[in-house]
Nucleic acid binder design. Structure first.
Length: 438
DNA sequence: AAGATGGACAACCGCAGATTG
DNA sequence: ACAATCTGCGGTTGTCCATCT
């Protein structure tokens, strides 16, 4: 298909109706239509903004794909189509929504501008802080960063970073603040030693990202690579660290109860071609840190169900019960997909004290939605034996359960699975999540 | 006042991996 | 098994506006 560049699309100068509708979006004004926010109040204008105003006839009878800025009418068509049919099948969108845009363009427009969960406006201090930390850890993994910054798009972050990089280079400022480099274990101790203003400063970082950063996929697939790393010199930074895979499954937990539980708690390692139970990865010798839960004011007075995803982990727990609680006892066992489920009583954790499950040792049977996914409600269910009966295979997990049971909490501290380097170095910061509240 | 420069932003391009037929 | 198609990602470019000289 041929593509025609439409330079004159929706010039505001030529379309005064588009000016002044969004006083809060001055940045976007006059540059051609870019704002999807003016849903109300300009409908009439939209109606008059027929595509014909911008269309360039192909002259060959084949519809040309439009390029350039999106018009209000196009936005409206795309938005209503996606709202009616859902995301995905972007080429169908192109064909069925009366849009003369390629599927990629539709997806981009939706993802970056029309999605309802987008957060507009400049990055706040915390977001900037996170972006810098993420870049220290992951390099130019914009999509990954975006998944950890709700409402932000990879494009937004990328633009911000590139601008920031240029500015710092121009002014001879370090790319990363020193205090952050000391806080976040990073792959290159001399990362800031290179004068950023020098022409090859950026290149070195990029090269580093390519050559030194060890992709978790590589760790899964290339054991030798993993084993040959010198952790003292080359700490591992997972550019694609372990991801959790949340699924709804039925679990037969312990021989004491015949209940079938719904859980979204199975944690998997995602490899290139499959998802592997976290325990299998651990059992295979990958030093994977299990998820943990930490609370500042959570009452743990009941039995907890701890899933021990591998025999070796179970042994760890049995051998080091003090790492969980001084009064931890272990009993019960069952199998699910080859992963022993161990029920552990952690009765010594009282209200007001921090309930910290030692990382790498165990974790409560709790389900989290991936907090990195924007606008996904935080879902965490903590299954205790007394309340277990409320769960059945017909009872879906509900966020309200979390809200009801953890309503005194203000925050959840979320620790993602991460890689262990030699000498107890960990790479992932503890993500603080605002608790949604009751 | 006019041109130069920088910042912010949107959108496109090419590539690679995943999926589908 | 293979090719075609779809999807997502990162890099890059182009445009406009604000500020500087």
């Amino acid at each position: 298909m041929t593509v025609v560049k439409v330079e004159e699309v929706a010039k505001v100068d030529e379309n005064p109706a588009l000016v002044g509708e969004n006083p809060g979006l001055d940045d976007e004004a006059e540059a051609g239509y870019v704002s999807p926010d003016d849903e109300d109040g300009d409908d009439e204008d939209d109606e008059t903004d027929s595509d014909e105003d911008y269309e360039i006839p192909s002259g060959h009878g084949v519809p040309e794909l439009r390029k350039g800025p999106w018009t209000p009418d196009e936005d409206k068509r795309l938005k209503s189509y996606v709202e009616a049919h859902g995301e995905g099948n972007w080429n169908k969108v192109q064909r069925n929504a009366g849009l003369n845009r390629c599927g990629k363009s539709c997806r981009l427009r939706w993802a970056n501008h029309l999605r309802p969960d987008l957060k507009k406006g400049p990055f706040d201090a915390e977001e900037v802080d996170n972006i810098i930390r993420f870049h220290i850890m992951w390099g130019n993994k914009w999509a990954k960063m975006a998944s950890h910054l709700p409402g932000r798009t990879d494009n937004e972050i990328k633009n911000y970073w590139n601008t920031r990089l240029k500015r710092n280079q121009r002014h001879g400022l370090p790319i990363y603040p020193e205090y952050m480099l000391s806080q976040v274990t990073h792959p290159h101790q001399d990362m800031n030693c290179e004068t950023p203003g020098e022409s090859h400063g950026k290149k070195q970082l990029n090269e580093y990202a390519k050559e030194k950063v060890v992709d978790m996929h590589d760790l899964i697939d290339e054991v030798m690579t993993f084993q040959h790393l010198d952790y003292d010199k080359d700490p591992v930074v997972p550019t694609k660290p372990l991801k959790r895979y949340a699924s709804t499954v039925s679990l037969q937990i312990s021989d004491e109860t015949e209940k079938t539980f719904c859980s979204t708690d199975l944690n998997y390692v995602l490899t290139k071609s499959q998802s592997v139970p976290l325990g299998s990865a651990i059992a295979s010798g990958y030093p994977v840190e299990l998820p943990s839960f930490q609370s500042s004011s959570f009452t743990l007075s009941n039995d907890w169900l701890l899933q021990c995803p591998s025999a070796s982990m179970e042994q760890q727990i049995i051998q080091s019960p003090e790492s969980i609680s001084s009064q931890t006892t272990v009993f019960g066992n069952s199998e699910h997909e080859g992963c022993p489920i161990t029920k552990i009583q952690a009765s010594n954790l009282s209200s007001g004290s921090d309930a910290v499950f030692n990382l790498g040792q165990c974790y409560p049977v709790a389900s989290f939605s991936d907090p990195g996914i924007p606008d996904t409600p935080l879902e965490a269910s903590f299954y205790t034996t007394p309340e277990a009966s409320f769960l059945s295979d017909t009872t879906p997990l509900e966020t309200s359960f979390l809200n009801d049971n953890l309503k005194d909490q203000s925050h959840l501290y979320w620790q993602e699975p991460k890689l262990l380097t030699d000498g107890g170095q960990w790479f992932d910061p503890c993500h603080k999540l605002d608790f949604p509240g009751p």
